[in-house]
Design a binder for these strands. Sequence first.
DNA 1: CGCATTTGACCCGCGC
DNA 2: GCGCGGGTCAAATGCG
Length: 615
Amino acid sequence: MEKQGRRHHISSKLFHHSVSDCSFNVSDDGLLVDATNNTSSSNPSIPIPIPIKQLFRQTKEIKEMDFFSDNNIMNDDADDDEEPRRQPQQDCNNNPPAVNTGLNLLTLNSGISSTSASDIHQNSNNKLMTSLQVELERLHEENGELKTMLDQMTKSYSQLQAQLLIAMQKQAQNRLREPIKCEANGMLARQFMDPRPSAAAAIDHVRDPSVAYSSGKTPADHEAFSLFAPSNLNIEVMSTERDQYQRRLQTNINCAEEALDRSSQCLGSPNYTSKSGDPHLLDDDNDEPNRSTDQVPVADQVPFRKARVSVRARSEAPMISDGCQWRKYGQKMAKGNPCPRAYYRCSMAIGCPVRKQVQRLAEDKTILITTYEGNHSHPLPPAATAMANTTSAAAAMLLSGSTTSKEAHQYHHHHLANSGFFSNSQLPFFASSMATLSASAPFPTITLDLTQSPMQQFHRIPPPSSSTFPLPLHGYHQLMGGLGHPIQAPMYFPPNYKAPPPSAGLSLSGGQRSTSTHSSGMIETVSAAIASDPNFTAALAEAISTIMAAPRPHQGHQGGININDGDIANNNAARGVVASTNNSPPPSANIGVRPGSLQPVSPQLPRSCTTFSTN
DNA sequence: CGCATTTGACCCGCGC
DNA sequence: GCGCGGGTCAAATGCG
Ligand SMILES: [Zn+2]
């Protein structure tokens, strides 16, 4: 029985479909079938009486037959490739796919042997079971490998998409450049925001997931990601330091390649922190001591490392719980805001460079803005992973070149608007949040705005200098590796919570706005994929994979996301992982954190900062 | 007693 | 050079 359950479970995993009514044998068969291809050798190793052997073979074959037959019945489309192969076997056996075949075999076997034989039969049976178990385990491993491969492929896909997007952006920029003269600030946002070649950025973007995976992330983790994805997030990206960036860029640009390479490497390493002369850097500068400053020129000072991701949401709680443990290390009165700004640093692991700032919005004190910066150097709880992923995705988008110049901005308005992104009529329920890029901020910052309902966002008029477009946030999935924050944890929505559209609005604003130029075609493709996919998670993954590309609005969904700190906090508490600083009241949250074990940290974008504000 | 928070001092970059 | 503002440090304080 135990085996049954286990096998069945595995088979389900492997094939993603239920073989529910299948008998025990059938289930096994399903598994075995796959296994047989690679693992048939295992059988020989086990000494089995000839009769039994034959039986075993028959069983195996039958099982395969059964499995597939069952499969065929259930899924006509499934396994087209394998069908042909298996077909012959079925013919040979002339056994119906029915589960009964297994029974028949048993019966046959018993008939052949005498009572004394029954003991042998049992022994052999046990052996068979053992071998089957082994095979199952192996299959499980294989399954894991396959998933890994899938992840890699997805990663590659994302990368290619990113590159494509970048190329398109470049084209668009070139086009725009003609009609629109660059202003003093006209420098492309992307330049100061992401000195690296776009391709590099894309690579980085993709890289996160891989790292996460390698770090031990399991498929389950990915699921977690997908859960979190909700997000209709408004992302506001403010690029700051434009002057500095510009200056640096002049010199750095040449080093972009080098920087890129380095950054990529750094991304891979959890402990990576950017080192720069900039006092604003949050990181602890604990990076490689070996590295001489000489060797690391300007590239290190590259602004992109300071990228921040901020999230704003409505929350009464002083701080939102994001699954991480934070220690407060400072508080300051921010100019122009009666509410003090609190500084926290990640205390989940000593030396973790991740920091965050928490501040309430002056205009609306119910809105909490949390800004994250840096990458975690340690495994994160699922909840934290979700957040990290979100932020990393946003950061990736920011860094990847989704940002652009004012021209892009205009382009964005033209094309995006025309494409229906901003058209209410076309996308009445466009629920996404807006992402804004602005040059006014000291650091490139992406803000995820969870405070507004989709409709509100929709109607919201972007700042003159900003442009908005839907952003599929969250990349959880692999893509997501994570923003530094791994914020990232599996978050799930309450039953009553409707899955938000995967896309979020993104607005780019700032002196030099940057916008992402995207091809409407891609957007359409993405949206189509999402729309067509009933599975929200899958859809989300799709959206994520295209994060770099301008995502497009979804029909779907409604309102802004309220994040209740309490919920998350509670979840954390339940898990035993509690943000020390979280004092969240009881909640009722839209987004819950699924209890889970620590996950390996997904690689996060270097020095990216995420701000999370709860409304 | 240990840990986390508080809070003033300090550092640094930037603008004038 | 000076002041301002953002950000961090670290001693003092509070809490369990
Ligand atoms: Zn951390």
